[in-house]
């Protein structure tokens, strides 16, 4: 059975994703979810970066790192959850199926839409393409066209997807955002490769 993204989408959305009326917590897929406004999610990151204009690359790395850990812990947890076993696991036979199932789940979280990908299993390289990333319009509306890519969460998640499916640990892979709607490109594109070991650099 191939991965059916619509079945996954309807199954996840059909779970009634809202906080428990008593505890106010939303536990599902082995994690605790919350619903935040996109404005909050983006503006806290941009304010953080603006606080460190001379050390922006380090601050950007901290944002990407949070998302890469999130991908590992969250989607790794999801892949071991009862919900995954019941709804998704029957569709998953190969590593590429796992990747497509992750895409299907990621496409219902309000982050924007994964519209394409390429994977080279031998070279362990992966390209992910996203439209309507939640960063893009918000960034342009509030800060103007960006001079550089801005989708830090997606960058970490793209690398995290490969950590999960083709890697052995968190940060096995690294991603760069090569195109970004926030800087006027038609799409956001992320290229992922395995991190080079030290001896590769010698």
């Amino acid at each position: 059975m191939a991965v059916n993204a619509e079945v996954i989408r309807d199954g996840v959305l059909g779970m009634g994703l809202r906080g428990n009326p008593e505890t106010g917590l939303l536990r599902g897929f082995g994690v605790i979810l919350a619903i935040n406004t996109v404005d909050y999610l983006i503006e806290r990151e941009i304010a953080f970066l603006k606080a460190f204009p001379t050390a922006e690359p380090m601050a950007e790395k901290a944002l990407v790192d949070a998302a890469q850990w999130c991908a590992n812990a969250t989607f790794g947890g999801m892949m071991k959850s009862a919900e995954w076993a019941g709804l998704i696991a029957p569709m998953v036979k190969t590593k590429v199926d796992s990747l497509e199932a992750l895409h299907a789940v990621q496409n219902v979280l309000g982050w924007g839409k994964i519209v394409g990908y390429e994977i080279d299993e031998a070279a362990k390289t992966y390209t992910l393409r996203v439209k309507h990333s939640y960063y893009s319009k918000n960034y342009i509306d509030n800060h103007g066209i960006s001079t550089k890519p801005r989708c830090y969460m997606w960058q970490g998640v793209a690398a995290g997807n490969m950590d999960l499916v083709f890697g052995s640990k968190v940060n096995d892979f690294e991603a760069v955002e090569t195109q970004c709607e926030a800087k006027g490109d038609d799409i956001c594109e992320f290229r992922v490769r395995q991190k080079r070991a030290l001896f590769d650099l010698l």
Binding site: I35, L41, T74
Partner: peptide
């Protein structure tokens, strides 16, 4: 308003 799900690990 536009919203998104994120998990405790991310936040």
């Amino acid at each position: 308003v536009e919203v998104a799900f994120h998990c405790d690990k991310f936040n």
